[in-house]
């Protein structure tokens, strides 16, 4: 599953970068994040409750920045496992400043396995997009405050 898109955030690039690198505030933006624990440099362990409407599940996993060039871009790898299956993904995130705003572009690939891959097929991509939209909306409101 390929995921890509962009989102405009109401803050300067440096502020966005800072937010993305602040575990405490990041945790508040990750949809369904119940716990975020720093396990190393740029490496977090997370517990998320994710889903859509009636469908939801708990996942534990890790988020890692594998490469970065502040404040322009970073590469991120995410993996999560839960009773309903697993998710693995990698994405490149680029920040471009435009005045007082920042355009975030992301492009990546995710694969899902287990139950959610075999029965959730038709909803998968849309669910992923919705979760990302939620994430960016949360970032935006964090930056506004």
């Amino acid at each position: 599953m390929k995921l890509q898109g962009s989102y405009t955030l109401p803050a300067k690039r440096e502020a966005v970068w800072q937010l993305l690198n602040d575990p405490q505030r990041l945790a508040e933006c990750l949809p369904g994040c119940e716990q975020l624990e720093v396990v190393g440099v740029d490496h977090y362990r997370v517990r998320l409750k994710l889903g859509m409407a009636a469908i939801s599940g708990n996942y534990t996993g890790s988020v890692k920045l594998t490469e970065k060039k502040p404040p322009a871009w970073c590469r991120m790898s995410v993996e999560g496992q839960g009773a309903a299956g697993f998710v693995q993904g990698e994405a490149k995130i680029e920040l471009a400043g435009e005045g007082n705003q920042t355009v975030v572009r992301y492009a990546g690939e995710a694969s899902v396995g287990g139950l959610i891959a075999s029965v959730g097929n038709r909803m998968m991509e849309l669910a992923a997009r919705r979760i990302l939209e939620q994430f960016f909306a949360n970032l935006a409101s964090q930056l506004r405050t």
């Binding site: 009636a54 469908i55 939801s56 599940g57 009773a83 309903a84 139950l115 959610i116 029965v119 959730g120």
Partner: peptide, 8 residues
């Protein structure tokens, strides 16, 4: 959904 435990 409940039987698959996608909803609990």
């Amino acid at each position: 959904l409940m039987k698959l435990r996608l909803a609990a």
